[in-house]
Amino acid sequence: MPSFHQNPYEVVIKPPTSSQFVDVKELIRFRGLLRSMSSRQVRAEFGDLHLGIFWVLARPLLMTVIFVFFRRVSNANIGASVPYAAYLYSGLILWFFFTESVSRAAASISTDGALMQKVYFPRLLSPLSSILAQLSGLAIASIPLFLIMGYYGLVPGWNLMLLPVVLLQTMLLAFGTGCLFAALATLSRDWERLLSLLLYIGLFVSPVIFAPDMLPKAAQSIHMLNPMSGALLGFRATLFSDYVLPANEWFYSLLFSGVLGLVGVYAFQRAERTFMDRI
């Protein structure tokens, strides 16, 4: 980062104002730090544990086995247009990527709080890096996905090109939610409990283990209000060629993510300022 280091520059320290939003230039200047913060978390995730990779895979794989078994014995109609194991597993890994990202980002002020009191860095790097770090888990978890897809002879179509877009949208949603709850967590621990409840229930009300077609028409439109619905369906559409991309639902999800991202960042910055003063 040459601009930062070779040129002396001027920093103006002023009281924070609401109009002062994210300093994007500064975030770019600190991209090296973002990298090292993320890789630090990846190392913590896999370095300290002897079975790091196993723990990442165990949850979605075991749940897939259990739900596939249930469906078999109950002969339930899930409404998925692709083999259930592939549908379920792909949903689970995106869902767990989302929930892990949200909960890590929501805990960022409390985990990096000690650091924030000692050294200056753009505070948003903290939730941002915890979400980026989760990509490593997603990458590992997608290896069994490829095997499952190979087993069923599923191939992605041209929609695969949209995979990064869908992932970015999911990350934006996780970032907004994470920032908002990180801010709320500085107020009271009630919000932490609320978040874990939401994330737990979310698994069952989002189209992870079932497909929207299973639901009656009225329930379908309500269920699409959940911003993760569009993301989950969009994710499948980029993976499986014969899965239709639900454009409207996904754009709603994107819009929701964008708004929540702004609200989250605003709340995070407000909370971080007051949090620093409480020490």
């Binding site: 920093v11 103006v12 320290i13 009281p15 050294v119 200056y120 620093m276």
Partner: peptide, 30 residues
């Protein structure tokens, strides 16, 4: 405030140059 871990309520400070600060022991160690 000068090392930017706290915000001022009023007034301003201008800093020319790169700042390194050591606030108490173990600055930012994990």
């Amino acid at each position: 405030i000068l090392s930017r871990v706290a915000y001022p309520t009023a007034g301003e400070a201008r800093i020319h140059g790169r700042v390194t600060s050591l606030l108490e022991v173990g600055t930012g160690f994990l």
